[in-house]
């Protein structure tokens, strides 16, 4: 709850709203147009999909840090939330997607 100057007023909230809206707009536009030069394969998927994932993580970071106020919590609380999430989710994702490719066609 520190840093009260940053949380009074509603201007910061609308700034983040516009950011989330613009990022979503970009995602939808890219999803509809699907520019061919972004379909170039990279890391087992396409550049376009990597852009989608990057933008999603950006939106998620803003929601968690500012809307859910985690940026202003104590270090111990932040770590208690972030560590399990940031270790387990990439781990599970890697294992299942890797195995999914292995069982392709079965």
């Amino acid at each position: 709850m520190s840093d009260s100057s940053a949380t009074t007023g509603t201007r910061w909230i609308w700034n983040i709203f516009w950011l989330l809206l613009v990022v979503t707009g970009v995602e939808v536009a890219l999803g509809i147009i699907k520019p061919t030069f972004l379909l170039f394969p990279l890391a087992g998927t396409s550049i376009l999909n990597l852009i989608f994932i990057g933008l999603t993580l950006l939106k998620a970071a803003y929601i968690v840090q500012y809307f859910m106020h985690l940026k202003y919590e104590t270090q111990s609380l932040r770590m208690a939330i972030y560590l399990p999430i940031l270790v387990l989710i990439p781990y599970l994702t890697f294992i299942l997607l890797y195995e999914g490719v292995e069982v392709y066609g079965y």
Binding site: L77, I81, P84, L92, T93, L96, L97, G100
Partner: peptide, 29 residues
Amino acid sequence: LMMWFFLVSDALTFTGFLTAYGFMRFGHE
């Protein structure tokens, strides 16, 4: 605090669903 811990576990539940979706999708491209 308990709400936060619940949300962490719930996030992992949704991870399970979405990664399972990815697994099946990669298996039946």
